[in-house]
């Protein structure tokens, strides 16, 4: 089962930040592949969602980039800034808390149904 894009949308920033925290620096293709690998292809990040998110994180000052020239093309490696590291912790905590709450909420609803 592949999760719907609506579900992924709200958590994409946190997923990307956490991956960057664990891997120091990554480029776009690498991020999509790593997520696919780790989640046994259950979560597939589309390019259409990934790049807007990466650029937005860069604009917010949470990530910074390092360019590498590969022949005629440029590869941008994304990595966390100091502010980004702090924000990752907060976002991961928030998401964990949210998942617990959600579990609790859905559990109650299931029982009552």
């Amino acid at each position: 089962m592949i999760y719907s894009s609506e579900l992924i949308k709200g958590t994409l920033k946190t997923i990307v930040l956490k991956l960057l925290a664990d891997n120091r620096k990554m480029y776009g293709y690498e991020i999509t592949q790593r997520v696919k690998e780790v989640t046994s292809e259950k979560i597939q990040i589309t390019e259409g969602a990934l790049y807007p998110t990466l650029h937005s994180l860069e604009n917010e000052g949470l990530v910074t980039t390092e360019t590498e020239f590969i022949g005629k093309r440029i590869r941008k490696h994304y990595m966390l800034t100091k502010k980004g590291k702090q924000s990752t912790k907060e976002k991961v905590n928030e998401l964990t808390d949210f998942m617990n709450t959600l579990g609790f909420l859905l559990d109650i609803k299931l029982k009552s149904a």
Partner: peptide, 22 residues
Amino acid sequence: KRFYKSELKEIQEETMLHLTFK
């Protein structure tokens, strides 16, 4: 084709939206 639903420009529009969101 995997990058978009109807045209590639969508990614840029989405990016701009994210950038102006701040």
